[in-house]
Amino acid sequence: MTIQPKPVYLDEKLDEVRQSGRLDYRSKALPTWCPGCGYFAMVESLTAVLNRMQLPHKDTVIVSGIGCASRFPFFISTYGIHTLHGRALPVATGIKMANDRLHVIVVGGDGDGFAIGGGHVPHAARRNVDITYLLFDNGVYGLTKGQTSPTSVLGFRTSTSPYENPDRPLNPLLMVLSHGASWVGQAYAGKPDHLTEMIAAAVAHRGFSYLNILSPCVTFDKTERTYSNLGLQVADLPANHDSTNVAMAMAAAMRTDHPLLGLYYKEDRPTLNENLDSLAAKAGAGTPAAGKKPVRAA
């Protein structure tokens, strides 16, 4: 199956979209992505989810690092902070610790999250910071015009690996599962409805939710992660998958030849802020800090 990107797509859907209320969460800025980029689907899915859940604009913050995906906050009409390459997670941690009422959604790409920012993922996951991390995994650095990323496949040719990529790709799902993320799932930009459901579930989760979103880069990867290749490779998690079983989730994450879509793992455990509050209660704080806005932000 081949999907040819056509600018007319939006025009045709405009009325439907306007009525759906999704545009309530879109800013007036137009995305700067290449036509056909998988990231358009993600904007659509996220705005749909925000609309469905009716998260207040004023209480929602989109946090990003640097990369194609990290332009995301500019296209959403909530609060947003476009930070540094690789540093979205710790910034988001600070925001969430400062104000429990905020819904914090981090968006970023594979280079941002697993190369330069790789040191932060384990800690956001193990602390169970109550944020959603949407990782747009296209296996290439797009903003800097096509270099090898930590999830680029072996043998991939780019401007920085002109002969071939000699490095084995990372397995983000396996990593976050081992780091102790309390919600782990995978979606594909080519399946927008499923993507929307997965984002909805990730945002609804109380704790650190990690959604790996496979996406093609139509400009800098014409051979590996194309819509046609990915469309043939992806499959749903088997019906008997037990999303409370981390070993089973890890086994599924190993299936890199045929990426499996769906909810890998979900666990209910106290979030960072909850842990800090019970610690405060032990230390004798008069009132728990949970849900309380900072004094000066009132």
């Binding site: 710790p90 988001a92 600070g94 610790m97 400062a98 602390r127």
Partner: peptide, 21 residues
């Protein structure tokens, strides 16, 4: 919070400052 490094320490400080703390 004891962060994983100084980069995350200042990042979280900026994040919390952005959020009004």
């Amino acid at each position: 919070l004891q962060t994983e490094d100084e980069i995350s320490a200042i990042a979280a400080t900026v994040g919390a400052g952005y959020a009004g703390a």
